[in-house]
Design a binder for these strands. Structure first.
Length: 429
RNA sequence: GCCGGGGUGUGGUAGAGGCUAUCCCUGGGGACUGUGGAUCCCUAGACCCGGGUUCGAAUCCCGGCCCCGGCCCCA
């Protein structure tokens, strides 16, 4: 009976793995050069970690289960909460800001679609210890830089949940009401937002929402001043000052943005700047969001100090859909050592072949026959494999203490010593 | 959770109630016992699963599984 792959999961064949490896290395490389350090957290955590962050609703889209000790566990649906948990447990005493990055698989029980899987990979970074505009700007610039290195056409939307939260607080809305409003605003449901508020405040919130939507539509920084004049934004708004500084810093970094104050990211824990990046080339259909992030204060929720943080996560699988590399970069050319067996000299030939392969393996992908094949069959294999060179080792070569090096692309071949062989191959790989 | 389109060897396909299921590619071996890519031969390998209708099902019906895409949500 044939066993099917579990729904929403994938097998990665060698060629695809090479592509993913190239992407991964570029992302890692840039994060390292921006001064971030890699960390790794467990694949599963206590389920509360995620319900505390995102609410009970997330249970239905998590792989959660009880272990034999009746612990309530879950495969991680994302990595921000685990990273903050780790920080509180292990990294509290590191100098601030603590800058980390991660690359890991996450699991969500959702309907698979284009570039959406039940097991998927996220690459993300967190700045723990700062949610200041300087941190926000660096983080966004880093995300952009990575996307650029992958050749992704990206569109950045920047918002700030603080603007709206501040205003709602002035209306004496409680946190839960604020969260409800944020979610509805994210969906663009103006009427529902108004209905969710006290009747007494409906006129006020309607005025506020209309003002905010003007602000969103204008996408112009000058609109802030007007909004302030109309009392859409408080005159002493921290959020506004933060946002204005962020936008200025983004210009210094050379990052283009679109103001989008409608972003609430659907998550209650974001407290300040929020951003989303979309793929602009139309290669992803409905699932075109490739990155999301913002400023948040989660640490306190998990029993730590109330430390501000800023982070983002890429959907690596979505990036892979967009990212393209030359096919030739994905081919892994190597050398094949061909023992030419002979009844009289079988063992000597194999010994020599293995020794030569061992030396070549110091610096180049090297094959050696594992199927007791004839000379021509071994060469056929080398060809099918797109290997570049064959090193023929037979009793004729052994007599002269040499090997035959055959260039599989040109068909030229020569007899040379093993030392010369190594030197020549080394120069080519 | 809801909606639409699909599932035939490794991959790509033909097939529309009736012979041993077509073709291309692929794997293994050989023609070729010291020289590959061509050609030829041999060989391996499939109707997603379960039930139903029928003398007879890859084909029609039902359910499930999986894939592709859309809504919602998100990465």
């Amino acid at each position: 009976m044939r066993i099917e792959r579990a729904r929403g999961t994938r097998d990665f064949l060698p060629k695809e793995m090479r592509k993913r490896r190239i992407m991964e290395e570029r992302m890692r490389d840039i994060a390292e050069r921006w001064g971030y350090e890699e960390i790794r957290t467990p694949t599963f955590e206590r389920a509360e970690l995620f319900t505390q962050k995102s609410g009970q609703a997330i249970l239905k889209e998590m792989y959660e289960f009880r272990d034999k000790g009746d612990r309530h566990l879950a495969l991680r649906p994302e990595l921000t909460a685990p990273v903050i948990r780790m920080y509180i447990n292990e990294l509290k005493m590191t100098p601030k800001p603590t800058k980390v990055y991660y690359f890991g698989n996450c699991f969500r029980y959702e309907e698979p679609q284009k570039a959406r899987y039940r097991e998927f990979w996220q690459f993300g970074t967190e700045i723990i210890g700062s949610d200041r505009p300087e941190a926000q700007a660096e983080l966004i610039a880093l995300a952009f830089h990575i996307l650029k290195s992958l050749g992704v056409k990206a569109e950045l939307h920047v918002g700030h949940v603080g603007l709206i939260r501040e205003r709602l607080r002035v209306l004496h809305a409680d946190e839960e009401q604020i969260n409800t409003v944020m979610r509805l605003m994210d969906k663009g449901e103006r009427e529902a937002v108004i209905e969710s508020m006290d009747e007494r405040k409906r006129d006020e919130i309607g005025y506020l929402l209309d003002g905010l939507s003007d602000l969103i539509d204008s996408k112009d920084k000058d609109a802030f001043k007007e909004a302030r004049d109309r009392n859409i934004i408080a005159s002493d708004s921290n959020a506004l000052q933060e946002l204005e500084l962020l936008l200025e810093l983004l210009e210094y970094y050379g990052v283009d943005y679109t103001l989008n104050l409608g972003i609430a990211r659907g998550l209650d824990y974001y407290t300040g700047m929020v951003f989303e990046i979309y793929e602009a080339g139309g290669k992803l259909g409905a699932q075109n969001q490739i990155c999301g992030g913002g400023s948040y204060r989660l640490a306190k929720l998990f029993g730590g100090d109330d430390i501000p943080s800023t982070g983002f996560a890429f959907g690596v699988d979505r990036l892979e859909e967009i990212f393209s590399v030359d096919d030739k970069d994905l081919e892994r050319r190597g050398v094949v050592v061909v023992p030419i067996r002979d009844k009289d000299a079988d063992r000597e030939v194999m010994k020599a072949a293995i020794e030569i392969a061992s030396r070549l393996r110091e610096f180049v992908p090297t094959h050696i026959d594992l199927m007791n094949r004839s000379l021509s069959a071994q060469l056929k294999y080398a060809n099918a494999h797109h290997d570049s060179f064959a090193v023929l080792v037979g009793k004729n070569e052994l007599k002269e203490a040499k090997v035959t090096l055959r260039n599989l692309n040109t068909g030229e071949q020569e007899k040379i010593s093993v030392d010369d062989l190594c030197d020549e191959i080394k120069g080519l790989f």
